[in-house]
Amino acid sequence: MNTNDQIKLNVTEIQRFCMHDGPGIRTTVFLKGCPLRCAWCHNPETQKAAGELLFNPKRCIGCRACEVACENGVHGGSEHHTVTRALCRVCGACVAACPTGALELCGREMSVEQIFAEVEKDRAFYGVTGGLTLSGGEPFSQGRAAISLLRLCKERELATAVETCGYFDGALLADAVDFTDLFLWDVKDTDGERHKRYTGVSNERILNNLALADTLGARIRLRCILVRGVNTEGEHYRRIAKLAGSLSRLDGVELLPYHAYGGSKATLLGFADNGRVEWIPTAEQIEDAKRCIADHGVKIL
């Protein structure tokens, strides 16, 4: 059997002192890889499972240290720094040479034990509420390795939460529920057709997994993104309320208004900024959604 030193996870970032990823003070571990391709993705750098190079032109001072360091001719351009990603082998040589931090590698292998050591650093602050939040990407896209981290946390008496899109192999759930104190379960849309159009996958598996998790005794917080003009409608809210009402250990429903920051993150990967201001819901729409759902007796967080 593999030990926690040998089991590896592909991590994009470990963020301490997170306040919005579950109760209390959390350390959020972002894992790489996601089966969904949401049009509004807030963390596009976590979509692909493989490592990627991030480039932030705002921090580039044009020193060309990367050009010298790279053996594959990725970096060039005469006036502006250009990145030819097709040539990149994600070796990290340019990142080490870049003085400003304009270049970053997204995705690094860490053992479960190494990750735990990072999470452990803030134990004094967690109290009884805070702890680890596993996020991403879709944490369970890394399968049993993710569960190993959750298990280790529970063995060492640390609270755990998982942010999931719900789209993963349901066979993982039996163990996942055992080692997860709270699921932050995304329901992007309750309309199957729209779900497929905007995320690339059907929501059937997500809802099946949700039902299974509930049967297995999971404590669940539903997280629902509000995208203006896409899912800001009463029928959706009614179905959210119904879904929430069906869960036996519901923590509450959290509404996440769309924001456009994910769009600027896409530029780090070489894509155009796909943030869409017209998708940001108005304050009234947010209140309306809260009211609609709360009217069905569901707790809004």
């Binding site: 002192f17 306040m19 109760p23 004094a124 602050f125 109290g127 805070g130």
Partner: peptide, 22 residues
Amino acid sequence: TSVLGEDGLQALMGLMRGFVEL
């Protein structure tokens, strides 16, 4: 924004608790 709501209260309490414990 980091001290909003119940989460924010918990965060401040956590910071103070950690400050004492460490």
